[in-house]
């Protein structure tokens, strides 16, 4: 790793101030950023750790029933504390990485990084979540802008994520056997006004909504409703773990499994 300083502010205001330095970078749980630094793929002058900020941690319920999760909340905490309110989301959090990774990695860190194979982007997009930063609120539909690309500005910090709670939801992950990241992961959420389907791991453009499946499942919430649909392999990722056609096929299979799990 190149050398850098670490600051551990205890308030959002102090963190935002520290991040004004051009080469400063926010550090969440570090489960992606630290390996990146070890490979010398990043060279920040300072890391601003967000893990000491109490006001960015924890799970609570908003007045409208949405589950609100502080940006610095770990996956393990979400798995435990969101289970009663939003089991689909808690189930997703409970299967990210491994137990030690879940005790460090955070929801804000995952969403800020927007790895095309990460789980949380599927939950946020599939729930129509609101990403709340130190300056504004961003709808999930506007937030994800392609592989590792988000609507976040330099120095902007995800302080909270607000997930509207669906009637039913499930996340199905087909794991890449070596990395255990999602080769394809599908989050299905059934709301009173329709079904949302978000797919991670598959596309060159990062997480996306499968609108044809949303329409079909909104009319008939069963795996059978997907039978006539096809997924284009055009923009799917090609690597040694799977061809675009294979990933396209998995999108439909995993969507069906998610629906079957809760239908």
């Amino acid at each position: 790793m190149y050398a850098f300083d670490i600051e551990r502010p205890s308030t959002i205001a102090d963190a935002v101030k520290a991040l004004k330095d051009e080469d400063a970078q926010a550090l969440g749980g570090g489960q992606t950023l630290i390996p990146t630094l070890k490979q010398r793929l990043a060279m920040p002058s300072a890391l601003i750790s967000l893990t000491g900020i109490g006001e960015m941690k924890g799970v609570c319920l908003a007045d409208d029933g949405a589950v609100c999760i502080g940006g610095a909340t770990t996956h393990a905490t979400v798995a435990k504390e969101a289970a009663a309110h939003y089991p689909g989301l808690a189930g997703l959090a409970a299967n990210i990485g491994d137990p030690a990774v879940r005790n460090r990695g955070t929801v804000g860190g995952s969403l800020a990084n927007n790895d095309p194979s990460a789980c949380y982007p599927a939950a946020a997009l599939g729930s129509g979540a609101t990403i709340i930063t130190n300056t504004r609120e961003i709808a999930a539909d506007d937030y994800f802008q392609g592989m590792f690309e988000t609507a976040l500005e330099e120095g902007e910090v995800i302080t909270e994520v607000r997930f509207p709670v669906p009637e039913k939801s499930h996340y199905q992950k087909f794991v890449q056997p070596a990395s255990r990241f999602a080769l394809v992961g599908v989050f299905v959420a059934k709301y009173a006004d329709g079904v949302r389907v978000a797919v991670t791991g598959a596309s060159e453009n990062g997480v996306f909504r499968w609108s044809e499946a949303e329409a079909a499942l909104s009319a008939d919430f069963s795996a059978a409703a997907l039978e006539g649909l096809t997924v284009s392999a055009g923009e799917m990722i090609a690597d040694l773990h799977g061809s675009p056609e294979y990933r396209a096929h998995l999108v439909k299979v995993m969507t069906g499994r998610a629906v079957t799990a809760v239908a």
Binding site: G30, I34, S49, A100, V101, N103, R104
Partner: peptide
């Protein structure tokens, strides 16, 4: 009290 990977956190943390 929580299991973590010592190679993936900084001593300062």
């Amino acid at each position: 009290g929580e299991a973590v990977k010592a190679c993936t956190m900084f001593a300062v943390e």
